[in-house]
């Protein structure tokens, strides 16, 4: 049975400098600030006690006041999994360092989040739309997305 590493388990492992950068913890994940993502990601991937070599899922949620990006990590060697998340409060130009240099599996998933949620991942090798076409107006998974009538030739982007 695989074990889930809860925040209390992670706090035992994290070094002090990273521990102090944690914004918040809830019952199943730790929350960090966007600028610290790369530092944490490198630690989770390389620390011999964690060895999170796979990113199972990377997704975004629009909570209106902020965007939350949720990372689900897994270590196949140790059969453990963990979750961490980060909040972005800037709605006009939300951006976040890309973790695709640490886990290649994040490549397409980050492009999907950019396409549907409009969060730009900096230093991503190919930050372009993936499911919708270039020139599509808006990001559908945002809560303030307005439906467009695609049958209306003047309106369809």
């Amino acid at each position: 049975m695989s074990t889930i590493l809860y925040p209390e388990n992670l706090l035992e492992i994290l070094p002090d400098d990273l521990k102090n950068s944690i914004n918040d913890t809830n019952s199943d994940s730790i929350s960090i600030s966007p600028s610290e993502v790369l530092k944490f990601a490198k630690f989770f991937r390389n620390d011999p006690r964690l060895q999170m070599e796979t990113i199972i899922s990377l997704t975004g949620v629009d909570y209106i006041e902020f965007f939350e990006i949720v990372y689900h990590l897994r270590s196949m060697k140790r059969n453990t999994s963990m979750i961490f998340c980060t909040q972005i409060f800037d709605r006009s130009d939300p951006n976040l360092p890309s973790v695709s240099s640490i886990w290649r599996g994040a490549d397409l998933q980050e492009r999907e989040v950019f396409d549907l949620m409009g969060i730009r991942f900096t230093n991503h090798p190919n930050m372009s739309r993936i499911l919708l076409w270039e020139g599509f107006n808006g990001h559908p998974l945002r809560k303030d997305f307005e439906y467009i009538d695609l049958t209306d030739k003047n309106n369809a982007s």
């Binding site: 070599e53 796979t54 990113i55 199972i56 196949m76 886990w103 290649r104 599996g105 994040a106 490549d107």
Partner: peptide
């Protein structure tokens, strides 16, 4: 190695 890294 690539497969694990790329979440395959």
């Amino acid at each position: 190695r690539v497969a694990v890294d790329a979440s395959i």
